[in-house]
Design a binder for these strands. Structure first.
Length: 417
DNA sequence: GGTACTCACCTTAGCTGC
DNA sequence: GACCGCAGCTAAGGTGAG
């Protein structure tokens, strides 16, 4: 029997849009979307007024334009949202040190040890909401429950509701009390469960499972047979409101990667290599910032028809320079036929460890020089910005294009005419 | 016909060493 | 030398989340 916990899930309401509205108050109450402005972009966030027209995050920008032609489309500013997110987390810190960030706009808070100081979970949720509003002029919804999974569903139940006739205010805070878990959980559609996406939903519906109760009543062995052992056991436990995962304060990243969709497809190895150098440069910089290196490097290629392949290589020792990453990944890229057209290229790194431990003396000597050079680049970027300097081989002729991290978070921008 | 980016985790298959 | 079972690793693809 696990001790009773009080977990909050705090979810900012239309976060990116709300941050934009602070500097564009003239747009308050209007349909506003933030995301990729180009035809290959997607929506990152939509105001509740835009949601009334069926516009939601992750929707292709072109679809959103069709559904809501009057919406104001704003390009995203990832660095600004990250900065505001840090301000929000400062407020969380005032009620508990046990914070697990899930994304820029949401986090779990374990406030079990804070109730004696601040009151019960609902009181703490109210405190957080009030402080976020008064300090930052941002709204959030809070779920209160004995575990993470229920807290997350509860925060969703507290959200504003966009309907064709208008936006209806949500409760702001929703609590699932101990003993009331199944009454809250079982009527929900099964796709509300964390871990049920389109593919799993289709398999579950083939078994006649539509609600969480249907899933709970299903024999666990049937579920495991349909969706696999790990996933099946996990979902079965969730359907009975069982979730003892702790709020993890210091989660270490296990992979670091960059990928980019291009406004127009690439057809030559020369173009691909140039993009590979840019991506490797970005990945290497982040590896060094984390004070680590990576042994496994993965190349991702998405072709014009959306078919995607991955190719990976595991090195004998970890690397942390763009030079070494390009050396490792380039042969994988050379084996790819780009003639169908490449719309996306990505490089990611995993299997972290201290770099350059097992190299030969000659390798080490050369790698040390690259590392020193790239550390100098890090220092220049820290002072003058990430677009101030970059590898010459990533630049074509006079067309300097050093995109800062997050600048194309939601797809390529609209192409100038 | 339209689908970004980043990260985590799982499954399956193949290979290697014992 | 051939084969088996097992564990561990790697590679590739898939799924899901926010």
């Amino acid at each position: 029997m696990t001790p009773l916990r009080t977990i909050l899930h705090v979810d900012m309401d239309a976060f990116y849009v709300s941050v934009e509205l602070r500097r564009r108050p003239d747009l308050v109450g209007k349909p506003v979307v933030v995301g990729g402005t180009g035809n290959r972009g997607v929506i990152a966030a939509a105001s509740y007024e835009a949601r009334r027209f069926g516009v939601f995050s992750a929707m292709p920008s072109s679809t959103a334009r069709r559904l809501c032609p009057n919406a104001v489309f704003l390009p995203g500013d990832h660095e600004l949202y990250a900065s505001v997110s840090r301000d929000v987390h400062q407020i969380f810190q005032s009620v508990t040190p046990y914070i697990e960030p899930l994304a820029l706009d949401e986090a779990f808070l374990d406030v079990t040890g804070s109730v004696r100081l601040f009151g019960d979970g609902v009181a703490i949720a109210g405190l957080v909401r009030d402080e976020v509003w008064s300090a930052l002029q941002l709204r959030c919804s809070v779920g209160v429950a004995p575990n993470k999974f229920l807290a997350k569903l509860a925060s969703k139940a507290a959200k504003p509701i966009p309907r064709p006739d208008g936006v209806h205010a949500g409760s702001g805070v929703h609590e699932v009390r101990p003993g009331e878990e199944l009454a809250f959980l079982h009527p929900l559609p099964v796709k509300a469960l964390w871990g049920v996406g389109p593919a799993t939903l289709e398999r579950l519906e083939r078994l006649g499972v539509h609600t969480v109760k249907d899933l709970a009543d299903l024999d666990e062995s049937v579920l495991v047979g349909a969706i696999g052992a790990a996933h099946g056991h996990h979902l079965h436990r969730l359907s009975w409101a069982e979730d003892d995962r702790p709020v993890e304060v210091d989660r270490e990243a296990k992979s670091i990667g960059h990928e980019e969709t291009y406004a127009t497809d690439l057809f030559t190895h020369e173009e691909l290599r140039r993009e590979l150098v840019r991506l490797a440069d970005g990945v290497a910089g982040r590896l060094r910032a984390h004070g680590t290196g990576a042994r496994t490097l993965q190349l991702k290629v998405r072709f014009a028809g959306f078919h995607t392949i991955t190719r990976s290589v595991t090195l004998p020792s970890a690397v942390a320079t763009a030079h070494a990453i390009v050396q490792a990944v380039e042969p994988l890229l050379d084996a790819v036929d780009p003639t169908p057209g490449v719309r996306l290229l990505g490089v990611s790194s995993s299997n972290f460890g201290a770099p350059a431990e097992q190299l030969t003396f000659d390798d080490l000597f050369a790698e040390e020089h690259w590392e020193a050079a790239e550390q100098t680049v890090d220092a220049i970027r820290a002072r003058f910005g990430s677009a101030a300097i970059g590898p010459a081989s990533a630049v074509q002729g006079s067309k300097l294009r050093l995109v800062r991290r997050g600048a194309q978070q939601w797809g390529p921008d609209q192409q100038p005419n």
